[in-house]
């Protein structure tokens, strides 16, 4: 686990660097909030309604497809690492079937017009 100390330090450094910059900036800048200044920007109009509006269903389709495909692509990494060390013919056809199922899923989504942005 020792090797991951660096990862932790980098995470903390990367996360806190913007915060440190904000503190430095706070010493240098002036803050003068006025009621007009702190309104939500909407090209100069008075904002109306809630910003959290309903979204097109296509966004959710793509999110679901992403979950399916991304989880399965991660399985390819361990396969690719050991591919040269194991029985390659067996490993190749096994992964061929696996990718084949993925491709069938892609074609299904394609034919169902899920991939078409309307």
């Amino acid at each position: 686990m020792e090797g991951y100390l660096d990862v932790l330090i980098f995470l903390i450094a990367g996360f806190s660097f913007p915060i440190v910059n904000l503190f430095i900036s706070r010493l240098l800048r002036r803050d003068n909030p006025r009621p007009e200044k702190v309104t939500t920007y909407e090209s100069g109009m008075v904002p109306f309604g809630d910003a959290r509006v309903k979204f097109h269903i296509a966004y959710y389709f793509f999110a679901l497809l992403f979950v399916v495909f991304d989880v399965e692509t991660i399985f390819l990494y361990p396969w690719a690492v050991v591919f040269r060390q194991v029985d390659q013919v067996f490993a190749f056809w096994e992964m061929f079937v696996f990718i084949g199922i993925l491709v069938v899923g892609l074609i299904y989504a394609w034919k169902k017009k899920v991939l078409t942005w309307v």
């Binding site: 910059n21 904000l22 430095i24 900036s25 706070r26 240098l28 800048r29 002036r30 803050d31 003068n32 909030p33 200044k37 702190v38 309104t39 939500t40 920007y41 904002p47 910003a51």
Partner: peptide
């Protein structure tokens, strides 16, 4: 310029 600029936080 970026350091010295006001950091506006909108009310909403």
């Amino acid at each position: 310029k970026l350091f010295a600029k006001e950091d506006v936080m909108p009310r909403a």
